[in-house]
Design a binder for these strands. Structure first.
Lengths: 353, 353
DNA sequence: TAGCGTAGTCGAATCGATTCGATTTCGCGC
DNA sequence: GCGCGAAATCGAATCGATTCGACTACGCTA
């Protein structure tokens, strides 16, 4: 029987140790490098491993013993597809990966919907990064808290026990609105991001509940300058949704028509511009358009006026915060980032007519 | 001492069992539901767990015992940023997530560079999906093989032990080239994707080594119809790189200038079109442009002629294949997908001059 | 009423490593 | 020549669950 085992059972560290004529503990040290081993012994162990086809310790066993898995969970809002489609999320995620790179941690993608691609509560993660999540994850945060799993929230829910990476969404939106104000615009329309999961597109009124903090903060910022500006919410951050929002906002008598549209994201702004042109109007002349994010859209003809946000730095900060937390340091929180106004060609003085 | 433990040590299943007055095995069954338990017992266990703040079994211990972690590794070529930027990768990944969703598996992002965001060899994954990887991962494939970890390769390296999901890159490129041929084009330029990791952009000659199979196959397809067509390779699949490629390909005497350009990806094609227009030429009249992928680029003015590939279905098939492999079934391999020609407005008859 | 199957529970082995404390070995200074 | 500290190695406990085989009651049939 023992002979036939070899084709089914993978070798373990114990097998390697036996083959090398050392104890399991010594073999472990030979692999991990923690502790003193003579060169001769190490080589004997490695040779035995090679001849048995042993490729190093089982990650599962190692992570049980060490209490660490080397995996960082990244919780995204909604479906993975829309998360990937959103340039800011992609860039932020890349920033996270860059900051985490040296540590050699893997990124485990999770979504905040209970069902779906991954089970947020049962994953073996050392830390969690929430990317723009809604309050839906509150319960999970408590679980992580009990498990002593550090949580970093990027533009997400705010709770005392977690480290926050923030963006000055509200203040930046004020700056954007002031820019329009300085150009003389008085009638302004707002194309917002999604208000809540599962919520359809449509007009945003006083009492529309807004669960997504980014949407809420940016809207509040704009409304500080333009309290009565009509707003239309989208479902996804896509040009198509932006286009529809603009068509809705511009579908009024010419005398009532907004002379400027604030889009809460550049992708929306692209669609807004598309709609404006479809209506035979000139962007930056008949209708000014200002975006948010500052992503570079290749192949896009206009120089979009927008609030440029440091998405990569944001992600990098989140990754660095995770590293610090895992090392036992608690970074000062919140880690705040600010946006900068880029004036392009899509905004201009209010038309005189 | 025991009293002070409570603030530092997390409760284990053993603690819960003791508090509930049952054995550990019974408590385990009460949680997992595998095996018979009386309702009274289960409730007693759950109540004890709740009062102790026990949030369910430790994923690490569970995965060690069960030999499964519930995590699927996804190996991407190059940096995460460029992987996300590539719409086809994003869509494929979403397809994977969709297919894997019901199974509740998490996606662990890995890159095929030894260093970086994740260590491909030491991750606790149940299966691996290679997305367009080069032969650089061959060693890892062997390791996975020895560990009995199923590997699915999407347009990646081909080896007997792994399940392959393929696209008819070569045949589709022939179809694209025939389309140009039928329009009378004789001088054709090719904007290729990257040829190998770390390789700079530049002309592709007979003896340029091409490690990336997608690039190679698509090029071979085009060359079946246009054996002598000059080719220029890019580094990344971006409009900017496509633009540079087109400028290089078109920078010849007017009599030598290509009347059509084959871009190996739609993102490249967008840049090609941009370059053509910068040169004062009309797309589809002076220079025809055909792409590959069939992604919808929002806010893009042209109706791009392209080979539409079923990216989402590809990802879905990869996810389904992983599910099957984990269930013990071996799907027929390769799982082949084909492209379809979409004739838009960016290709037209060869200019008569 | 003896026999038997089953639901419910338990104890112990197991998964495959890491790590702690103990032991042996060896070189070296006094 | 003796003891001492560091290097090298070992054995055993440990991480926290799952699972298998055994055991106890209990209800049912013949």
């Amino acid at each position: 029987m023992t002979a036939s085992d070899q084709h089914t059972r993978r070798p373990t560290l114990a097998d390697v140790a036996k083959a090398a004529g050392v104890s399991v503990s010594t073999a472990s040290i030979a692999f991990s490098g923690s502790g003193p081993v003579s060169d001769a012994t190490r080589e004997r162990v490695l040779a035995a491993a090679a001849s048995l086809g042993y490729d190093g310790p089982d990650p599962r066993a190692r992570s049980l013993r060490q209490g660490r898995s080397g995996v960082i969970g990244v919780v995204l809002e909604g479906s993975l597809l829309y998360a990937f489609r959103d340039p800011v999320t992609s860039i932020t995620l890349d920033g996270v990966a860059t900051a985490l790179g040296p540590q050699g941690a893997g990124l485990l993608l999770l979504t905040d919907s209970g069902e779906g691609a991954a089970t947020i509560d049962t994953a073996a993660v050392d830390a969690v990064i929430l990317l723009g999540c809604s309050t839906r994850v509150d319960h999970s945060i408590e679980v992580f808290g009990r498990r002593d799993i550090p949580v970093v929230s990027v533009e997400g829910p705010s709770r005392p026990e977690l480290v926050e990476v923030t963006l000055d969404n509200r203040a930046a939106s004020v700056v954007a609105a002031r820019h329009l104000q300085s150009l003389g615009h008085e009638r302004v329309g707002i194309a917002t991001l999604g208000t809540a999961d599962g919520q359809p597109a449509g007009p945003v009124t006083e009492d529309t509940p807004i669960a997504v903090s980014v949407t809420r903060e940016r809207l509040l910022g704009t409304r500080e300058i333009y309290p009565d500006a009509p707003a239309w919410s989208s479902v996804h951050n896509t040009p198509e949704d932006g286009r529809r929002a603009a068509l809705a906002l511009l579908d009024v008598a010419a005398s009532e028509r907004p002379t400027a549209i604030v889009a809460q994201a550049d992708l929306l702004a692209i669609g807004v511009i598309q709609a404006v042109e479809e209506l035979g109007l000139v962007v930056g002349v008949d209708v000014s358009v200002i975006g948010f994010d500052g992503i570079r859209i290749d192949g896009f003809a206009h120089d979009l006026t927008t609030m440029v946000q440091p998405a990569s730095a944001k992600g990098h900060a989140a990754g660095a915060a995770v590293t610090a937390l895992l090392a036992g340091d608690r970074p000062d929180t919140p880690i705040a980032f600010t946006c900068e106004l880029h004036v392009g060609s899509t905004t201009g003085p209010v038309p005189s007519s």
